[in-house]
Design a protein around this nucleic acid. Structure first.
Length: 194
DNA sequence: GTACTGATTTTCT
DNA sequence: GAAAATCAGTACC
């Protein structure tokens, strides 16, 4: 049920597509929270929008490490965003998790987010880390064991039919903005934007 | 409903 | 010193 390292050690765009429908789950002292991944973005080698584009720095070092680990960084001084490291070790590639459909621990998510509407709990990269209690303390953590995990699609009962995957441009970037590296489940009402 | 703005701080140049 | 893989609130149709 936990996705193996071999899942992540593939072409990043393929991993981004295959992650849709899988579950991101975090456990801590307050409880367990998790949801279905419904939106993500690929950041790849030779990609001016990727943090790894200009080589390794203290912040992005985890992106250059082994696949199957979490890269968590702070954005705009306020929010944390979570990525999964993908591809070959040293390539500096990752997939940003942008939105979840809340499934596990919805009450705890509502408390952490101070919101009740399910659609607003995890519909954005900063929102979902807040709902799941993911912070930079998890930067570099393995997703194969430990408190933050990714489970396969079959781990929990999901929709009867897989909705079509929509591929479009990434959100919030200025460099390489035209590259279609954002993926989401068509028809999901839990994505950050259409 | 859409559009614009302020918050807030880390990070790298 | 500027920019940043964002969000919530306000203003205005």
């Amino acid at each position: 049920m936990i996705l193996p390292r071999s899942f992540y050690e593939r072409e990043t765009v393929t991993v981004a597509r295959d992650l849709l429908g899988c579950y991101l789950v975090h456990q801590d002292d307050d409880g367990t929270t998790g949801g279905r991944i419904v939106e993500d973005e690929a950041y790849i080698a030779e990609d001016p929008a990727a943090h790894s584009f200009r080589g390794m720095t203290p912040r992005n070092a985890v992106m250059f490490g082994p696949p199957g680990h979490a890269y968590v960084y702070r954005i705009y001084g306020l929010y944390d965003c979570v990525n999964v490291v993908t591809g070959r070790e040293g390539s500096g590639e990752a997939v940003l998790i942008r939105a979840l459909e809340p499934v596990i621990g919805i009450g705890l998510m509502q408390k952490r987010r101070r919101a009740t509407d399910r659609r607003s709990l995890c519909s954005g990269p900063g929102k979902l880390t807040q709902a799941l209690g993911i912070t930079r303390a998890l930067n570099g953590a393995s997703l194969l064991d430990g408190p933050l995990q990714v489970w396969s699609r079959e781990s929990l009962p999901g929709p009867a039919e897989d909705p079509a995957i929509v591929q479009t441009t990434r959100i919030g970037i200025t460099k390489a903005a035209e590259r279609p590296l954002r993926f989401y489940l068509g028809g999901s009402s839990y994505i950050s934007r259409p």
